[in-house]
């Protein structure tokens, strides 16, 4: 069995990693951690009066790469500590599109994403990754969303 867990480095995906490790251990599954470097900020380098475009892009890339490296280190350390065989995949681009591409490529049996406990207004503002993935991959995809209740900081690692 192959489990894919999507990690963006924010506290709520920590719960998703926890759940993925738990399942991988129970099912003796291979665990794959996926982090997508979000390209959203890069597009603003073509702003009309943007000065210092190169410096801006270098700074954004450096920050995003540092974060990706931190996410990878933390994920591998947690898997290692739980004795779960794991590997880490890093992609760059639109989040939903890249995750869909990895699902297509690696064909995992289960995909786990993190989620927050949102109010109605926050739900409107949310990108709703789970819904985007269902749309991109179809309903056949077995996907679990781990929601971290906002008043349960004990779940946030």
């Amino acid at each position: 069995m192959r489990i894919l867990v999507c990690i963006d480095g924010e506290p709520h995906t920590s719960g998703a990693v926890e759940r993925a490790i738990e399942l991988a251990r129970a099912e003796s599954a291979e665990l794959i951690g996926l982090h997508v470097i979000d390209e959203w900020l890069r597009q603003f380098s073509s702003e009309i009066y943007a000065q210092g475009r190169k410096e801006y892009l270098e700074w954004v890339d450096q920050c995003l790469e540092d974060k990706a490296s931190e996410v990878r280190k933390s994920f591998m350390a947690r898997c290692h500590a739980s004795s779960v065989p794991a590997r880490f995949v890093l992609r760059d681009g639109d989040r939903a599109a890249e995750i869909a591409a990895v699902i297509d490529e690696l064909e995992p049996e289960l995909v786990i994403t993190g989620g927050k406990d949102l109010t109605r207004w926050q739900r409107f503002r949310s990108a709703n990754l789970a819904a985007q993935l269902r749309k991109a991959c179809g309903n056949a995809l077995s996907m679990e969303t781990v929601t971290v209740p906002q008043r349960r900081p004990d779940l946030v690692v």
Binding site: D38, L41, Q51, Y56, V60, K67
Partner: peptide, 25 residues
């Protein structure tokens, strides 16, 4: 000054993080 263009010029100087820049933009 001039909105997003100013954020792009100032972000690397004041070491703004990507999440801060996303909120500001």
């Amino acid at each position: 000054v001039c909105g997003v263009s100013a954020i792009i010029a100032t972000g690397p100087v004041v070491k703004a993080s990507p999440i801060e820049m996303a909120y500001a933009i």
